[in-house]
Simulated assay, not measured.
Amino acid sequence: MLKLDQISTGYGPIQVLFDFSLEVRAGEVLCLMGRNGAGKSTAMKAIMGLLPLSGGQISLGGTPISTLPAHEVPRQGIGYIPQGRRLFTEMTVAENIQIGLMTRGKGAKTRERVLDMFPRLRERLDQRAETLSGGEQQMLATARALCLEPRVLLLDEPTEGLQPSMIQLIRETVEKMREAGVAIILVEQRIEAVLQIADRVAFIENGHGREVVDTEQLRGDRRLFEKYVGV
Rank of each mutant, 00 (worst) to 15 (best):
Q98M: 06
M91A: 13
Q76H: 04
Q98V: 01
G84D: 11
G84M: 11
A94H: 09
E90M: 08
P74D: 13
R86D: 07
N96P: 02
P82F: 03
A70Y: 00
V93Y: 02
P74Q: 15
N96V: 01
Y80W: 13
A70I: 00
L87R: 05
Y80G: 05
M91L: 15
T89M: 15
I81P: 06
A94G: 08
I81M: 12
I81D: 05
P82E: 04
E90T: 09
M91S: 13
H71Y: 15
M91Q: 14
M91V: 09
Q76G: 07
I97S: 01
A94Q: 08
Q76W: 00
Q83R: 10
H71T: 11
Y80S: 07
Q98S: 10
A70V: 04
E95W: 02
R85F: 10
T89W: 06
T89C: 06
R86F: 06
G77C: 13
F88H: 03
V73H: 01
T89A: 14
V73Y: 03
P82A: 05
Q83T: 13
V73L: 00
N96M: 00
E95Y: 04
G79S: 10
T92F: 03
R85A: 08
Q98K: 04
I99Y: 01
Y80A: 09
I99F: 06
N96A: 01
I81G: 05
P74A: 14
A94E: 12
Q98G: 02
G84T: 10
P82S: 05
G84E: 12
I78P: 09
A70H: 07
R75S: 13
T92C: 04
I81V: 15
Q76E: 15
T89K: 11
F88N: 01
R86V: 00
R85W: 08
A70W: 00
E95K: 06
F88T: 01
